[in-house]
Amino acid sequence: MIELRGIKKRFGQQVVLDGVDFVVQDGETVALLGPSGTGKSVLLKHIVGLIRQDAGTVIVDGKDVARLKREALRQLRSTVGYVFQNGALFDSMTVFENIRLGVTDEKAYRNLEFCQERVAKCLSLVNLTPDTADKYPAQLSGGMRKRVGISRAIAGRPKYLLYDEPTSGLDPVNADIIDELVKSLAAELGVTSIMVTHDVRGAFRVADRLALLTGGRIVQQGTPKDFMQSTVPAVREFLERDFGNLNFAA
């Protein structure tokens, strides 16, 4: 379970998170929605300890992330797969080497045969052909790079998968492919997923539950149906941009 309680974060004078409470149960896929620049990615980075909160607690798997020592944090991170917005692939490495780095168990990482099998398996899970392994990130399209990023995130068999804007910058067809992938990986691997996005339609297709972050706080959490019936002005305003007039939902 991932539990964020009263998270506050400011950068200089700018308050980004102002007391966020957010819980994700095991096995759930939750979409974290919100306009650009509201701190969705910042919130996600708190979960893996890339950013430390000014106040509040982040509990992952029963462990307080901010209090973990170096080795414990490394172990916790090995249970979390993180898919970065632009892939964050190492451009001096091939796709194979990139995905191999995701094998977080050191013994397994040093076993070349195991890694070759694992990389091939991860590539097939994201619908990429085995010959992609020999390419460099610069030789891939945007959609392929995102899929390689997902492959790297799942290579270590994580318990949690965090997606930071997995469909941003993609055309609708590729965005749909990634959305389907998020859904199928959650089902096939049984992982708990959090997907940060501002693509409302994608979020409705993929997520069991949605949360809307705006003004530094989560203003609404619930199922897609709860969202459609919400009377919270911020929710209606956000949804109407994608779905038009929501009166049909009433």
């Binding site: 893996v48 890339l50 490394r74 970065f84 632009n86 964050a88 190492f90 270590g156």
Partner: peptide, 16 residues
């Protein structure tokens, strides 16, 4: 460049 393209963050999230 690795910092601004989040490659260094990616290394950290991979426990490396």
């Amino acid at each position: 460049t690795m910092r601004v393209t989040e490659q260094i963050d990616a290394l950290e999230t991979l426990g490396r």
